[in-house]
Design a protein around this nucleic acid. Structure first.
Length: 405
RNA sequence: GGAAAGAUGGCAGAGUGGUCUAUUGCGUCGGUCUUGAAAACCGAAGUACGGAAACGUACCGGGGGUUCGAAUCCCUCUCUUUCCGCCA
């Protein structure tokens, strides 16, 4: 990287010097012509040939080094913050907090249920059938595996959750955005899905457009090639969109039911902030997400991801997981990350610092608040009782009932 | 699908081969005036890369070409707008 950078710089210096000379000669020709001194002008013209060749040569060197540099840069992941746990995989993630005792981290005392001890509980795919909420086979018929059809109370539960999450985000000061769900390649590169995750996105080849895997892509790309006034920061946006993921290569028992889908609904919160304030912003986002899980009365834990388990683009990432009582395992429902300047650098998303009017890279952050399917899975499984499925109090006004029957 | 026009600095909008590192207006910032504000007047102000700095180079949608010299001429691509057709 450093070698390429050096090559680029020295090529530019050589090119700039030659170009400066060339510009001067051209200018003098113009002046001579104006004065009518044709012969002197012709003399000057004769000098330009060699210079021109030089410029072309140095220019080629420069763009060659620049291209190689850009290419290399695109393959380098973000640099994790110091507090990120070392490690290569999910086992190295650190549980920082949970409302379920004995699951690591600080226990917060809101969860009063008992987990992992009731063999009679049905998994959500059986509950979905029992109460006619979701038809997975119908989805296969219409689209394929991983495209469930929500029906009746199932569909209403989806709508209730979307509205609940948006209402909470609005309350927390996020501006609601309804972006396109299909984006161009430039947007994919801007937020870092391209080239890293090319194979995970649905691609419409005829138009060279991508189906978004998350609202992060269109909502963050609003700020591509933009210089923001510092007084506008932090920018707080939220968006509900459908999300599309090919999930190539991930098949097996973990994908049963709602656990892993090709299309799902998600409410995303996105922030653009200054480097000084991004950490505080991140904490606010974590509190917001945690608050949602508390209002939904779900058992949850919060993990600080290890370097190896973080996405390519994140500098610091926390996952939120809810406990699924019939599957006896934790399900990831949110990733809330600070990307530092990593995305901003690709997006060319900068702000003008009030203090000295300098143009500086922003920090970008985003988090799911929240993704629906696994929330639905946990709600169904954890709240099943003889009469049906209990709807948490906070959700009842949105669902219009206290129970799925 | 057919036809036409267009792409210039935060925005609007001039500029058809040589002080264009781009006229002008609006907006922005600083100042004068004012008790304060408005108005008026004066002034400042793009981005990127290189350089300690002075300064240099590049950038008028992208790419290529002609020329000593291109916002301006030629080729090509992309996108946008308008009209017609079709449609929600």
């Amino acid at each position: 990287m450093l070698r390429l950078d050096g090559e680029r710089k020295s090529a530019q210096q050589a090119k700039d010097a030659a170009a400066a000379q060339m510009n001067q000669i051209s200018k003098s020709i113009g002046m001579l012509m104006a004065k009518g001194e044709r012969e002197k002008a012709e003399e000057a013209k004769a000098q330009t040939g060699a210079l021109k060749a030089q410029i072309a040569e140095f220019d080629a060197k420069m763009s060659e080094a620049e291209e190689a540099q850009t290419k290399l840069l695109l393959t380098i992941p973000n640099v994790p913050y110091d507090i990120v746990p070392e490690g290569a995989a999910a086992e190295d993630n650190l549980v920082v907090k949970s409302n379920v005792p004995h699951h690591g981290g600080d226990t917060v005392g809101t969860w009063v249920g008992e987990v992992n001890n009731d063999e009679a509980k049905l998994p959500h795919w059986e509950l979905a059938k029992k109460y006619n909420l979701i038809d997975f086979d119908l989805g296969v018929k219409i689209s394929g595996a991983g495209f469930p059809v929500y029906i009746g109370q199932g569909a209403r539960l989806q709508r209730a959750l979307i509205n609940f999450f948006l209402a909470e985000a609005n309350k927390a000061g996020y501006t609601e955005i309804m972006p396109p769900t299909v984006v161009n390649a430039a947007s994919g590169y801007g937020t870092g899905q391209l080239p890293d995750k090319e194979g995970q996105m649905y691609h419409c080849e005829v138009d060279d457009l991508y189906l978004i895997p998350t609202a992060e892509v269109p909502v963050t790309n609003i700020y591509r090639d933009v210089i923001i006034d510092e007084k506008e920061l932090p920018i707080k946006n939220c968006a509900y969109t459908e999300c599309f993921r090919r999930e190539a290569g991930s098949y097996g028992k973990d994908v049963r039911g709602l656990n892993r889908l090709h299309e799902f609904s998600k409410i995303e919160i996105v922030r653009i902030d200054t480097p000084e304030h991004s950490d505080a912003s991140h904490k606010e986002m974590l509190e917001h997400v945690e608050g949602l899980l508390q209002k939904l009365e779900l058992p949850y834990r919060i993990l600080r991801l290890s370097g190896g388990d973080m996405s390519f683009t994140a500098a610091l990432c926390y996952d939120f997981e809810v406990y699924s009582e019939a599957q006896h395992r934790w399900l990831e429902v949110s990733s809330t990350s600070n990307f530092d300047t990593y995305q901003a650098n690709r997006l060319k998303c900068r702000y003008r610092r009030a203090e000295d009017k300098k143009v500086v890279l922003c920090h970008t952050l985003n988090g799911s608040a929240l993704a629906l399917p696994r929330i639905v899975a946990a709600l169904l499984e954890n709240n099943q009782c003889e009469e049906g499925i209990r709807i948490p109090k906070a959700l009842q006004p949105f669902f219009g009932d206290d129970m799925i029957r």
